[in-house]
């Protein structure tokens, strides 16, 4: 297959998985509309409502499969072939993929059925944003990005981002449910506070070491090779560090009795805000970042990579 046809395949796959995610969302909406009529402690295992739920998960599995094809296509379309996370469009594509994939992987283990509609809606909206605002044609990477550390560094950062995002969803629901007195409907059906808190903790406990690996081990190793200094206090690094410190504070907060639950959830969401700000905000607000996608300012000596688009992390 030619590069152009790989690229076309990727674009079609993005559109197709968007449609399937949308169908999955519809199925989950039907499911939850059905569940609304029941008391919160009643479960259904047969009939239309249960079918819709299972259909939602099945469609999500299919969508994630097509999503994977979209990523593969991006990588294969480049010459030379490469990992599909060279710009923000691709990073969003990869990030949403891992959010959806982790949700499916943890579905059984943490009984995450209730999270289906939220995850699918989030992934779908991010994908749409990516297609509308972030799309860029496939292009070769700039020189500094040709390193296997790019593969390891970014993939771990994306996985951690996925886990933190899922954990953040739990924390939001914790805060919402804490204030809600409803005995029916969505909030009444999500797991009780203690288990939301616990699931959230475990997502974060999974994400934190991965993030540590991404930003404090592989990031500096790569930075050392490419930029001659393993830690530059570059804005992207600063915010990755801030995120790390906030999540360390979250784990501490959880470890002290008084900070379980509500306060911990707030710290977790602060962490998530710093994480997303780092991904999106810094690219637009900071011109000095070596990670910047924005058009480079004029440096005294043009770096070897004054390219318009560099690694997101």
């Amino acid at each position: 297959m030619s590069n152009a046809s790989w690229e076309a395949l990727s674009n079609q796959a993005v559109a197709a998985c968007g449609v399937v995610y949308f169908l999955a969302l519809l199925a989950h909406l039907v499911q939850w509309a059905g569940l609304r009529r029941l008391a919160a402690d009643e479960t259904v295992t047969t009939g239309r409502t249960a079918m819709a739920g299972r259909l939602g998960v099945l469609l999500t599995v299919i969508a994630v499969g097509i999503h994977a094809v979209a990523l593969l296509g991006r990588g294969m379309a480049a010459d030379p072939n490469r990992v599909p996370w060279g710009n923000m469009y691709e990073f969003t594509l990869a990030g949403t993929f891992f959010v959806a994939l982790l949700y499916l992987l943890f579905l059984r283990r943490f009984a995450l059925e209730w999270m289906g509609p939220l995850v699918v809606a989030l992934v779908l909206s991010l994908l749409m944003l990516a297609v509308v605002w972030l799309y860029e044609p496939v292009a070769p990477l700039t020189e500094a990005l040709y390193s296997y550390w790019l593969v390891i560094h970014v993939v771990s950062a994306v996985i951690a981002t996925g886990a933190f995002t899922l954990g953040g969803i739990c924390s939001v629901l914790y805060l919402l449910k804490e204030r809600s007195k409803a005995d029916r409907g969505y909030l009444a059906r999500v797991p009780e506070l203690a288990s939301l808190d616990r699931i959230s903790y475990r997502m974060h406990a999974f994400g934190f070491p991965v993030w540590t690996f991404a930003v404090l081990i592989t990031g500096p190793i790569w930075a050392h090779q490419a930029w001659s200094s393993y830690w530059n206090w570059d804005p992207k690094e600063v915010w990755a560090f801030i995120t790390w410190v906030v999540y360390a504070a979250y784990l501490h907060a959880r470890a002290t009795a008084g900070w379980k639950g509500r306060n911990a959830a707030i710290v977790a969401l602060v962490g998530l805000a710093t994480l997303w700000f780092n991904f999106i905000g810094i690219n637009f607000f900071s011109s000095s970042s070596q990670h910047s996608y924005a058009a480079p300012v004029t440096p005294a000596v043009v770096r070897i990579d004054p390219a318009p688009s560099e690694a997101p992390l």
Binding site: W233, P235, V245, S287
Partner: peptide, 28 residues
């Protein structure tokens, strides 16, 4: 205290990502 110091450290790191730093971007 450890918790407060950790959060403080995160907060204190912010200005350096907004104001151009002498060591990082002296022209900026």
């Amino acid at each position: 205290t450890a918790l407060v110091l950790l959060l403080l450290l995160a907060l204190a790191a912010i200005p350096g990502s907004i104001v151009p730093q002498e060591d990082v971007d002296s022209i900026g």
